[in-house]
Amino acid sequence: MTPGDGPVLAAGCVLWRVSPCGDGVEICLVHRPKYDDWSHPKGKLKRGEEFRAAALREVLEETGRDCALGPALPTVRYEVDGRPKEVRYWAARDTGGSFAPNSEVDRLVWLSPAAARGRLTQIRDRELVTAFLDTLNRTPERTPDPAPER
């Protein structure tokens, strides 16, 4: 890294919906064939783009889903190829759309929080599930109780 280089900036979401079965919530995960990993939808900011706008754009590009941003989740920091990366996350409720595989994301799944935690490749992404569930439990309006841990 040369002096003056800042971190790679990115944004993403823990995308969720009420389970169609009616038992709690489900979290959307994406599979990226380039890395053969499962993660939350996220991506780098474009020049001049705000974090919130980038989060919405990345969810739409990777999942085909529209969403409504909710509470901010913890910012995640790590290194990629020797360069610091900072990813800001939000809880985001799914508002509709349709997934189509693309060069970046070839699969999408909706899972219970416990199953999502088990499928996620990175520990840092698993910790976001816990943070997301904490925000659901603190939200004043009535949201469905998350599915019990199994």
Rank of each mutant, 00 (worst) to 15 (best):
V18D: 13
Y78W: 14
T143C: 00
R107H: 10
C67D: 15
R119E: 05
D5L: 04
V30H: 00
V87N: 08
L136N: 10
V14N: 04
R150K: 12
R117A: 00
V129S: 11
E58I: 03
E141Q: 09
E141K: 00
E50W: 15
E104G: 05
R47S: 11
P20D: 15
L45R: 03
S103T: 10
F51L: 07
P7V: 07
Y35H: 04
K46Y: 15
P74G: 13
Y78H: 11
V129C: 01
T130L: 13
G22D: 04
V30E: 05
K42V: 00
A55E: 04
A91W: 05
R88I: 12
L56M: 04
A147E: 00
D94L: 10
L108T: 01
D134R: 01
P146N: 06
E79C: 07
R138F: 05
A68M: 01
A91K: 05
G6M: 09
R126S: 04
V105Q: 08
W16T: 04
P113E: 02
E127I: 02
F99H: 13
R88N: 11
P3W: 02
D37P: 05
P7E: 11
N137D: 15
L45K: 03
F51C: 09
K46P: 06
Y78C: 09
L15V: 06
P7M: 04
F132N: 12
V18C: 00
I27F: 13
G97P: 15
A11S: 11
